[in-house]
C-alpha cells in the first residue's frame, strides 16, 4: 500500500524503519489527507480548494503540492483508502454467503453501511465521477475492477451450485446489479433512507434482475 489511511489505525507495525525525513513527509501527507477529508465532506469536491485544505492543515499551499500533484489526486487517495478498508469486508461477506442473493446483498451491505455513514463524501465522489478526466477515470476503474471480480466470483458460484442457469450473461448481470446498487444512494441522499431500507430495496431489485437467470 502506498499510503496510510487517515481515519483508521494502521494495525500492522511499520515494516521498514523510516528515516526522519520520510517520517516527517508521511506525517505531512496524513495531515493534508485528514484536512482534505474534512473539507470535502463539508463543502463537496468543487467547494474545497487546495488553499482551504492547506490552511486547515496548518501549512502552505506549496507544502500540499509537494505531497500531491493536484486536488484530484488528493481526493482519489482518500477514496482509495476508504475502498481498501471496505474491500476486505466485502470479500469476506461475499465468500461466506450460501446463495448468490446472500453474497451480493452481503457485499453491498458492507458498502452501504460504510458510505451512508459518510454520505457527503460519497455524494462528492459520485458527482466527480461524472465529469472527471480520462486519467482519473482509468484509475477509478482499477478500484472498481476488484469489486466486479468479487461479483463475478459470486455469480460463478451461483452457476456452479445450480442456482443460476449455465448460460447466464454474468457480465451483464453484474453491471445491472451494480447500477441499482449505486442508483439507490439517491434514496439516501434525497429521501434519507437508512441502510436497512436501501438493502430491502436492493433485495427486491435483485429479484427483478435475476428472475430470468435462475435455474
Amino acid at each position: 500500500m502506498s499510503f496510510v489511511s487517515v481515519n483508521m489505525e494502521s494495525g500492522a507495525e511499520t515494516p521498514v524503519k523510516l528515516t526522519r525525513r520520510a517520517l516527517a513527509k508521511q506525517r505531512t501527507r496524513e495531515r493534508v489527507l485528514a484536512a482534505a477529508r474534512r473539507l470535502f465532506t463539508e463543502r463537496g469536491y468543487e467547494g474545497a480548494t487546495i488553499r482551504d485544505i492547506a490552511q486547515a492543515a496548518g501549512m502552505s499551499t506549496g507544502a500540499v503540492f509537494a505531497s500531491f500533484a493536484d486536488k484530484s489526486e488528493l481526493f482519489e487517495e482518500i477514496l482509495t483508502a476508504d475502498y481498501e478498508v471496505i474491500y476486505a469486508q466485502m470479500t469476506q461477506a461475499s465468500r461466506t454467503a450460501k446463495t448468490i442473493d446472500e453474497a451480493l446483498l452481503g457485499l453491498f451491505a458492507v458498502a452501504y453501511g460504510f458510505h451512508v455513514e459518510q454520505l457527503p463524501l460519497l455524494r462528492a465522489s459520485i458527482a466527480v465521477s461524472w465529469t472527471r478526466s480520462e486519467a482519473a477515470e482509468r484509475r477509478a476503474r482499477n478500484d472498481l475492477k476488484h469489486i466486479f471480480r468479487l461479483i463475478a466470483e459470486a455469480l460463478q458460484r451461483g452457476v456452479d451450485q445450480g442456482q443460476l442457469k449455465k448460460d447466464v450473461d454474468a457480465k451483464l448481470l453484474a453491471e445491472i446489479s451494480w447500477d441499482v446498487y449505486v442508483a439507490n444512494y439517491r434514496r439516501a441522499v434525497y429521501d434519507g433512507w437508512s441502510v436497512d431500507a436501501l438493502l430491502a430495496r436492493l433485495s427486491d431489485q435483485l429479484k427483478v434482475i435475476f428472475a430470468g437467470a435462475r435455474a
Partner: peptide, 25 residues
C-alpha cells in the same frame, strides 16, 4: 410483477449507462 420496482431498475440501468460516455470524455 411489482411494476414501479421494474421501472426503478430500468431507470438505474439507463442512467448508469451514461458512465460509458463519461468514461470516453
Amino acid at each position: 410483477l411489482d411494476l414501479p420496482l421494474v421501472v426503478d431498475t430500468l431507470k438505474a440501468a439507463y442512467a448508469w449507462n451514461y458512465r460509458m460516455t463519461a468514461a470516453a470524455g
